[in-house]
Structures are given as C-alpha cells and as structure tokens.
C-alpha cells in the first residue's frame, strides 16, 4: 500500500467505483438467489391466512384441502375467465391497483364459504386482512387481520384471536342493505357490531372503513350468490 497515495483523487475515485460495483454484485446475487424462497414464504403466508379466515387451523389443514378455487371477479361480480391461481395471488400483492383495475380476487372454499381480501388504513400504516363469509353470503365465518405498524397492545390487538373471534357469527346485511360489521366503542349493541379495542379507536375506525368499502366492491357478487 505504501507506494500509493491513498488520498489522491484518482485513487479515491477508483476505490469508490470498485467498492460500489463489488457491493452491487454481492447484493444482486444474494437477492436473486433468495428470491424464490422469499416469494414462497409470502405466498404461504397468504394461503395460511385464507385457511385461518375459514376457521381452520393452518397447521393441520392445508390450503389445497380447504379452498376449491381462486377466482377473479369483474365489477359486476362475474368471474373473469382465463385468470390462473397465480394471477389471483399476485393481485393480492397490490390490492389497491387490482381494485382500481376492476379486478376483485375471491377464494371459494369447498364448503361453499367465500374469502374476500380487504385492505385499508389504520392509525400508523396499512391494515389488511381476509374475511370469510358463510354460504349465505351474510354471516361471517371468520376474519384474519394484519397490520404493518399499529401500536402494540392497542391497535395491534386486531391481530389477536380474541378480537378476530368476536367477528364470527356477525352478519353484514340488514335486510337487503349491506351494513358491514363495525367495531363499536362502548360495546356491541346488535349483530352488526363487535366490541372496539379501548385505546385503539383510530385503528378500529380504520377496520370499519376497510370492511365497509371493500365489501361494497363485492356487493354484486354477494347479491347474486345470496339469492341462489
């Protein structure tokens, strides 16, 4: 090293270029070699959440055991043909874009239940989940919710079984009107409400808005299948 002047401009520029190229190659190789594994993990997580929303234990029941079909619906609630299961799952990665494009993913279970993906905004960041409806398209079979940054112990409680199980058996229709289910401060008073989380009001408001707006998008589909 002694023969170089390590503080000359030429040396600094060459040093930076070599460093950046080496690091870039290293990171690119790692990223590419781990990518399939990471995608598999993410896909698995989604499958498990769908299974869990249907009230099954993801440890014992696999996605293939429980779900019959993954479909993509248009605005009118009709299935768009030619969409593979992979297409439906990749739409889940960006539900906002998918909904805006008029494509609505839905998962049909073997027992006639359907699972609808939902997304919204909590207090600190996005919240999302899957809501499963009984074959009557009215009663909630189960719900799974997740978040990226809600307050632990308060808003983040939406991920707990305690909160999620309180949705089971509630109904989303009042007569023919879609009223959705809301988390009510002060305790549930009817069959469209569940207890809110004290200290997590903003997150609960986010959950209410998420369920309402997303279920409304599926209204044509729910109506068609309800009458059958």
């Amino acid at each position: 090293m002694a023969k170089f002047n390590v503080n000359s401009n030429a040396y600094i520029i060459i040093y930076s270029i070599v460093m950046v190229v080496v690091v870039a190659v290293l990171l690119a190789v790692t990223s590419l070699s781990l990518q399939s594994r990471q995608n598999e993990n993410m896909l698995n997580e989604k499958r498990q959440q769908i299974v869990k929303a249907l009230g099954e234990n993801p440890e014992t029941a696999s996605y293939a055991d429980v779900v019959a079909e993954a479909a993509m619906l248009d605005k009118g609630g009709k299935a768009i043909s030619g969409k593979s299961e992979a297409d439906v799952f990749s739409a889940l990665n960006d539900l906002t874009a998918s909904f805006e494009a008029g494509e609505f993913p839905v998962f049909k279970a073997k027992n006639g239940c359907v699972v609808i993906p939902v997304y919204g905004a909590g207090l600190w960041g996005p919240i999302w989940g899957y809501i499963a409806l009984e074959p009557d398209m009215n009663t909630i079979k189960g719900i799974v919710m997740d978040h990226s940054g809600e307050t632990p112990g308060l808003g983040a409680e939406i991920t707990t079984d305690k909160v999620q199980s309180s949705f089971v058996g509630k109904t989303i229709f009042e007569g023919a009107e879609l009223v959705s289910v809301s988390m009510r401060k002060g305790g549930a008073t009817n069959n469209h409400e569940v207890d809110a989380i004290s200290g997590g009001t903003k997150t609960c408001d986010g959950v209410n808005a998420m369920l309402k707006t997303c279920l409304e998008d599926y209204l044509p589909y729910l109506n068609t299948n309800k009458s059958n």
């Binding site: 990171l27 781990l34 594994r37 990471q38």
Partner: peptide, 12 residues
C-alpha cells in the same frame, strides 16, 4: 441488507 434478505428467506 444481507441480514434482512436472509431473515426474509429463512425466518419469515
């Protein structure tokens, strides 16, 4: 970034 990538791949 390497640590993050490995965590994502092996302990998701």
């Amino acid at each position: 970034i390497l640590v993050d990538q490995f965590l994502k791949a092996f302990v998701y």
